[in-house]
Design a protein around this nucleic acid. Sequence first.
DNA 1: CTAGACTTCAAACGATTGTTTGAAACGGAA
DNA 2: TTCCGTTTCAAACAATCGTTTGAAGTCTAG
Lengths: 206, 206
Amino acid sequence: MPDNPQFSTRQRILGAAEELFAERGFAAASLRQVTAAAKVNLAAVNYHFGSKNNLIEEVFRRRLDELSRRRLERLAAIAKSDTTTLESLLDAFITPALELSLDREGGSVFMRVLARAFAEHNSNLRKFLSDNYGYVLKDFAVAFARLLPQLDKEELYWRLDIAVGALTYAMADFGMIKRRSGESERTHREQMAKHLIHFTAAGLRA
Amino acid sequence: MPDNPQFSTRQRILGAAEELFAERGFAAASLRQVTAAAKVNLAAVNYHFGSKNNLIEEVFRRRLDELSRRRLERLAAIAKSDTTTLESLLDAFITPALELSLDREGGSVFMRVLARAFAEHNSNLRKFLSDNYGYVLKDFAVAFARLLPQLDKEELYWRLDIAVGALTYAMADFGMIKRRSGESERTHREQMAKHLIHFTAAGLRA
DNA sequence: CTAGACTTCAAACGATTGTTTGAAACGGAA
DNA sequence: TTCCGTTTCAAACAATCGTTTGAAGTCTAG
């Protein structure tokens, strides 16, 4: 896809950068590798994005704007109901990421890029993510708090922190479980999401 | 510590490399930065370790040899008993890592380096870790299987995979929870281990 | 004291990094 | 067609990368 001439230079660069960032990390993926994969001139990155750092942020923005919107959309749809369960809340958080990872146009690697952002201690990147998308986690935390009134604030935050870790790690496919040969990518990821919700709900409730 | 002249050149390089790998990643931490932090000549790395890749592997070997030994030691101590609980198994896995992270001599950053190894898709590094330390996870998996007979093999692997993810993420301190101002590093990490065991045990049992 | 192995050092190697430049090519409006 | 803003291009910038070299320094065994 990143080298498909029917897409614009901007889009091809974003696609190639996303794949190489997932594969090699932000520092190790060079602009020459990115532009070569995108079949685009080296200078195009600085022309369209200004710098490598801006390109990195734009790779996040392209996916996270819609991902956050869909998550909050689902959250709003269930939060008003008084029959909301922990599982439905976790589903509202996970399913949009699952759909993104099943997107044909390269969404499958973005979750790996996102997980790298946690591994990077890069404070600029963390601040960028927190400033622009931190409110999503905040809104979910409020909804979780309503469903877990027996937990005091500190206890709740510990558990949500651990839950986010499990989700991040699993959605990035860092684990050891490989997709079985007869199994499609879709059913593999759906299985993972199912186990993830079951496991995390139990951990939050315990 | 890494620049303390009472330690050997080898040890100072390993200490400085560990810190910089945790902070910036394997690719972004240059040998010039490492040797400068260790107050050692640039050529000392290639003299003592041969190459940057060998240095990376040696950073892991220095910590993982003893960490694996301690984990299996605790596993052996409880596995024979027939009153073994999920919590005690998780404790056997987590406590040695906790002790390492509280080590005065820089062990606290190693867990971050270890988590980076998961984020890196580097197949050489993953193979090195799997070949040399994979048996530890295998032994623990057998012990978990005995305690969770109601789970079939596939179900068990999914849950262990998710559990390892939660442990890796939390021990690397990737989460958003910051140590409270009045709290020591030790009690903060002990709190984290306690919550981690509680959460994960519930997820495995659910 | 000397011989010889071990360790450290400054300097340089070619390769690669992100970024900048100015000209060439492009494409719709007048 | 002529014009002009937008985009692409090859080439070069200084800086930094991992690695190698050969000499200088250090230390212990004989």
